[in-house]
Amino acid sequence: MFFSIIIPLYNRPQEINELLSTLTRQTYTQFEVLVIEDGSSHDAKAIVQKYEDSLDVKYFFKPNAGQGFARNYGFERATGDYFVIFDSDCLIPEDYLEIVKNYLFEHKLDAYGGPDAAHETFTPVQKAISYAMTSPFTTGGIRGNKKHIGQFHPRSFNMGVSREVYEKAGGFILTRLGEDIEYSIRIHESGFKIGLIPAAKVFHKRRTSFSQFYKQLHFFGRARINIYKHFPSELKLVHFFPAAFTCFVLFSVLMNIIWPPLAYICNFILLVYFVMIFFHSWQVNKTVKVAFFSIIASFIQLTAYGLGFMQDFFKRVVFKQQ
C-alpha cells in the first residue's frame, strides 16, 4: 500500500518543519508527502525543500481558498492508493503508517479517522486544551473513540480516504465550517465503510493560548449549524450541551445578582463539576498545573462552542438568514 500524505498549510512554516521531521522517522516508508501552501504570506518552500533528500516530498503554492479546497488540490496530484490528511500542527508517531497499513489490510476500511493526544513536549496550556478536547467531562469525550453518537465522522487533523472514495465521492465541497464532517457524511451516503483506528493517534498541538482556543471553538460551534443546514438529521441532542452549559452559567451569574439562595445551588453544581475535571485531569496528566488549566480550557471549550452554536442557530435556523 502506497500512501499520499496531504498537508494544507497557511502561514505556519515552523509547524510544517516539525511535522516533516516526524515523518522522516516513519517505520513504514511507502509514502509521498504533498504540502499545499494555501496563499501564505510567509511561505515554507525553503523549509520543505530541506527534506527532499529524506522524504518523497512535493511542494505546491496556490491562491488562498481555505483548507478544504487545498486538500482537494492535493488529491488531484496524489499518486497513492490511500490519501492521508494531517493538519500542519500535528506531530506523527513513528509507527503511525505501520499501524494504519496493518489495520487497513485486516479490516478493509474505505476511510478512517484516528484520535489525538498531547505530546510530552507540549506546554501546560496545550496539554490542558488537549484534555478539554478529549475529556469525558466535555463533548470531547465523544470524539476519537468508539462511543461516539451515531455514525463515526473522522476529523481532518487525522483522516484517511482511499483513492476509490475520492474517485466516486469526490473531495471537499466546503472549504471550512465543518467541511470534514460534511465529507464524512457524504462518504457514508456513497456506501463506503468508515471506521476508527484507535491506535493511529497523532499529537495535535491545537492552539497555544486560551484566546486562540476560544476563537477556534466559537468557530466549531458555528460549524455545527452549517452541518445542520446540509444534513438536518446530524444535529443530535449532545450538540446542544455546550449551549445548555453556557445558559446555565449565565443563569447562575444572574441569580447571584437577583436571588442569592438559588445562586448558591447553581454555584455548588458548577464547583462539583470543575472539581471532577480537576482531579480527572490530574490523574491523566500527572501535574496540578495542567489540572488547573484544564478547568479553564474546559470552561472555554463549552462556552465558546455554545456561544458560536447559539449565534448561528438563531441567525440561520430561527431567523432564516443566509
Rank of each mutant, 00 (worst) to 15 (best):
L302S: 14
I265K: 11
A65Q: 15
T27W: 09
I92H: 01
C266F: 15
L104D: 05
N11C: 01
N256R: 08
R163L: 06
S4W: 05
F3R: 01
Y228R: 15
A78K: 08
M159G: 04
G66V: 01
A199F: 07
A78G: 11
T121K: 09
G141I: 01
E32M: 02
F268K: 12
F137Y: 13
I99H: 15
S21A: 08
N17P: 00
Y131L: 08
Y112Q: 11
F86W: 04
K315Q: 06
I194V: 15
K58S: 15
N64F: 13
Y59E: 09
M310H: 01
Q151I: 14
Y273E: 09
P198N: 09
K45Q: 08
K101M: 06
P232K: 08
R207T: 01
Y103M: 06
L177Q: 13
E179Y: 07
F313L: 12
I257C: 02
F83P: 04
C90Q: 01
F268E: 13
Y228A: 11
A44E: 05
F245T: 04
S40V: 05
N226Q: 12
K62H: 07
Y59H: 06
G171L: 07
L254Q: 07
A199K: 15
L104H: 06
G68Q: 03
I92T: 04
D87L: 02
S40Q: 08
P115F: 11
I225Q: 04
V317W: 01
D43H: 07
M133D: 10
G171C: 06
I295Y: 07
E18L: 06
T79F: 10
I5L: 04
I265F: 14
E15C: 00
F309H: 08
A304F: 07
G39K: 02
F248A: 12
K193G: 06
M133H: 02
L97I: 06
C90A: 10
S184P: 06
T22E: 00
I5T: 02
F248M: 06
F274H: 13
T134E: 05
Q283A: 13
L174N: 13
D312K: 11
F213P: 03
V57C: 10
T79N: 14
N17K: 11
